[in-house]
């Protein structure tokens, strides 16, 4: 069997005319220069902007509720706390947005670039995903408050099954949203981790990747416990106390 001569292919590669003939027009290049990025930084930014907009709308909705329930002290206090919680979530998301690595692709090599994205995701973005998962829950709570206001003029006293239904919806909306967000982002990060593992395959630094995975798991567990405890306290505060 004839031995393959790679130099022959290298020479064909260098001489291939179609690479030089297929030119993009200036107009097309100018159009491309104005588009938004589809890379991982772009994805982080886009998801944060969407969440910040949703939370601003929810905080506005709680603001209106503060006026509607202004004469009912206990509900007013709960609404004010929810309003402050939403504002706190917006502040956290804005802070994380500002920390998204503004990677200049020409300043670092492939390995460093992949590390900076994976590091950011594991250290900072996990918190953002959990905060974003609260949007649906806060939206549901504010919607319920409007419903109660227009139906009863107040939040009526709850029966056992009401606690159960509301409690389940609140917890479920959070968990479902968290599940979708984590699955989506880990799908993207896994692709970067695979490329990094391909670079590091012979290197001792592969253990660094394992460290990130451990860090991610640890952060996710800590944040989840804190947020879940907060969520349970919220449910208790809303409907029991």
């Amino acid at each position: 069997m004839e031995e393959i001569n790679l130099e022959k292919y290298k020479s064909a590669w260098k001489k291939e005319q179609s690479f030089f003939e297929e030119k993009l027009s200036r107009d097309r290049i100018l159009k491309f220069m104005q588009l938004t990025s589809k890379n991982i930084s772009g994805l982080f930014k886009k998801s944060l902007i969407i969440d910040i907009i949703i939370k601003i709308l929810v905080s506005f909705s709680f603001g209106v509720l503060l006026i509607l329930y202004s004469s009912q002290n206990r509900i007013l206090l709960i609404t004010a706390l929810l309003f402050l919680l939403t504002i706190l979530c917006i502040i956290i998301q804005i802070k994380i947005y500002k920390k998204i690595p503004d990677v200049k692709n020409g300043d670092q090599n492939i390995k460093m670039l992949l590390y900076s994205y994976i590091d950011f995701y594991n250290r900072k973005f996990v918190l953002s995903l959990l905060v974003a998962s609260f949007s649906g829950t806060l939206f549901f709570i504010s919607g319920s408050f409007y419903y109660f206001y227009y139906k009863y003029g107040t939040i009526r006293s709850f029966q056992y099954d009401d606690y159960l239904v509301f409690g389940i919806i609140i917890v479920f909306s959070f968990l479902l949203s968290a599940f979708i967000q984590f699955r989506n982002f880990s799908f993207h990060i896994r692709q970067l981790e695979n490329s990094l593992a391909d670079i590091e395959q012979d290197s001792i630094n592969e253990s660094k990747l394992k460290h990130y995975k451990k860090l991610n798991r640890r952060n996710s567990i800590i944040y989840s416990i804190i947020l879940f405890a907060g969520l349970l306290l919220l449910v208790l505060f809303l409907f029991v106390i």
């Binding site: 589809k38 692709n105 492939i110 994205y117």
Partner: peptide, 18 residues
């Protein structure tokens, strides 16, 4: 040289959508 770096970094960090 710079263009190779940016283009390869972009190609490697661009992820597929689920």
């Amino acid at each position: 040289t710079w263009m190779y770096r940016v283009a390869l970094n972009t190609a490697l960090s661009l992820t597929k959508k689920p």
